[in-house]
Design a protein around this nucleic acid. Sequence first.
DNA 1: ACCGATTATGTGGCTGGCCAAGTATTTGTG
DNA 2: CACAAATACTTGGCCAGCCACATAATCGGT
Lengths: 159, 159
Amino acid sequence: MPGPTPPHTPNAAGKGPLSYAIFQLARAHRAHAATMLRAMNLHPGQELLLMQLFDRDGQTQAELLEHAGLDHSTVSKSLRRMQDAGLLTRQPAPHDRRVMVVHLTDAGRALQQPITDMWHTLEQISVRDLTPEQVDLFTTWARQIETSLRDHNRQTSAG
Amino acid sequence: MPGPTPPHTPNAAGKGPLSYAIFQLARAHRAHAATMLRAMNLHPGQELLLMQLFDRDGQTQAELLEHAGLDHSTVSKSLRRMQDAGLLTRQPAPHDRRVMVVHLTDAGRALQQPITDMWHTLEQISVRDLTPEQVDLFTTWARQIETSLRDHNRQTSAG
DNA sequence: ACCGATTATGTGGCTGGCCAAGTATTTGTG
DNA sequence: CACAAATACTTGGCCAGCCACATAATCGGT
């Protein structure tokens, strides 16, 4: 350590505790998910689209991105990579050749159990030091904060 | 809408409520921050490094990335872009030419008040529907979950 | 039937973020 | 003093994610 490490007022808790906590929690959560997903040759975010397909196969991209809440370009590129990886197929719908219907392949379906297990493990690790009641409250408040942010962002950015 | 929108069991709350909530909250939070940061020609994540420099100018990259918890390559590239934007300078330390000391420029310092205001606004929006006690609990639990994830990730990925 | 508006998706470009590999400098050890 | 190891940072590569723009196809009004 080169510097004498001066007392520079470590106010990490004083510069926006909530926002800082959200940011760091999300990063830790994503990092851990990434670690487990790499064992299945997946990248963070892909498992959300796959789980949506496990829930109901043959959805269109528009349906998938609505549930995931992502940008359509993000979904488009992510699906193309998973298609290249042999996890799913995309075929234009017969009645409307604009929409692309996404179907899982056998290789994609084979990931259902591993992903489900991974997700379950991630949940258990996350809640290890909390009671079920605390987890329930935490989730409820997280959704409330999310709603507040979305509502205000609508007012601010777009009319 | 082409499809008849069949009842496909919208169990968004049944596939990992906590992880899903964390993911969505983080995305909403980041999106709102991005909206406000664009008015200052900044990108999400850059404000964290700048705030660290507001707290103490002249830190090394190693110090900055330790506080932010980011990868060293991420910090290196982000700092280079902010340097190109004229917000800061990077100069090798005289006693150890490996370390790069980061200093704010006038343009960088000029962002202190806007970023502080933005952060404060973001906090107020986030906690709109919660009491201070609830926010305090939420933050505490968020840190606990983060700690659990980090601890377990250490055991799993690196021995 | 035509032509503009809407919808669904694709592409390019940029940044954030991580990993892996590389470079330069300092430190530690024989 | 020489040389390996550790340190601080850079670069390349890849994917997620967003915006803006482009493309294709359907819908709608006249």
